[in-house]
């Protein structure tokens, strides 16, 4: 596989760990009707940190991820990205109001999101998928945007597929295009929602490899995943969620090998055997 300009070479920037929080969630609650899907979730992610969220399905991990870029609205609590409330603004009287659409869109530019089902635009080629947001949101000229797109596709190892339509690509290639598309907006934070769950087993590795390189470059990442190997090798911290709550969080080796909570141990025994 071809990959340009990354990690293994010495010029790649070292992981920047400034300790500055990129995501700060405090007491976040979310209900779907009567269903309490997020129950007092607090989590902070520092710049350059890679946090992997694990947990059984229905534990609220995907919902939490979607709240971070306001694909879902939180019902209570504080959720800050780069120090700004996401999706809400404080009025003069100190109350919370829904932010204007323009404000939410501007905040989302800072946050890349990679979906389980890729959600590539099927009517556009790989390069056009990557170039669409820069041309429409940032008003970058088309030829410049397409050049940048080609460079980003090279970065995820599929430059030669720039003129292919999504349906002509394998799942692994599609997900790498999706990652390039998110990177095109130069986000400060990347969110991955089970990025390899929809892939055939033989394609999981190529996507995880791109993510590993991205992490090594210092990207701040929150990853919902069942890939324990990835969590161990790339994650700085693993967070276990169940029934809408954060059960425990810690360094990968510690949490995965010596979980303090019984529920974590039970979950791990199911996915690791």
């Amino acid at each position: 596989m071809r990959r340009a300009g990354l990690v293994e070479d010495a010029t790649a920037p070292a992981r920047t760990r400034t300790g500055r929080p990129v995501v700060e969630a405090t007491g976040v609650h979310k209900w779907f009707r009567r269903n309490h899907v997020l129950d007092d979730v607090s989590l902070s992610v520092d710049e350059g940190e890679v946090v992997v969220i694990i947990g059984p399905s229905g534990s609220g991990k995907t919902t939490f991820l979607r709240c971070i870029n306001h694909l879902e609205r939180i019902d209570d609590g504080r959720l800050l990205v780069n120090g700004h409330r996401i999706g809400h603004r404080e009025t003069a009287s100190g109350k919370l109001a829904a932010a204007a659409e323009a404000e939410i869109a501007r905040q989302r530019e800072q946050i890349g999101f990679v979906f389980q089902q890729f959600n590539l635009f099927p009517h556009l080629t790989a390069a056009e998928n990557v170039a669409l947001a820069p041309t429409r949101v940032r008003r970058v000229g088309r030829s410049k945007a397409m050049e940048d797109a080609t460079r980003l596709l090279a970065r995820v190892g599929i430059e030669e597929k720039r003129d292919s339509y999504p349906r002509q690509l394998s799942g692994g290639q599609q997900q790498r295009v999706a990652i390039a598309r998110a990177l095109a907006m130069n986000p400060a934070l990347m969110l991955f929602d089970e990025p390899t769950s929809a892939l055939d087993p033989e394609m999981v590795g190529e996507v995880l490899e791109v993510m590993r390189e991205l992490a090594a470059e210092g990207m701040t990442m929150v990853v919902v995943s069942h890939e324990m190997g990835f969590a161990r090798r790339v994650g700085d911290r693993v967070v276990m969620m169940d029934e809408g709550r954060v059960i425990e969080a810690g360094a990968p080796d510690e949490l995965l090998d010596r979980p303090r909570e019984e529920r974590t141990a039970a979950f791990l025994s199911k996915v690791l055997h």
């Binding site: 989302r108 959600n119 669409l132 598309r181 907006m185």
Partner: peptide, 30 residues
């Protein structure tokens, strides 16, 4: 058109209007 299409568009910072015009409608027209 799958809901994920509009979600992907807005997650990139596009407005709902732009998502409709550049992502959802071209697919709907077919």
């Amino acid at each position: 058109v799958d809901r994920g299409q509009a979600e992907a568009a807005v997650s990139l910072g596009m407005r709902r209007r732009q998502a409709m015009r550049h992502v959802v409608l071209p697919q709907a027209m077919r």
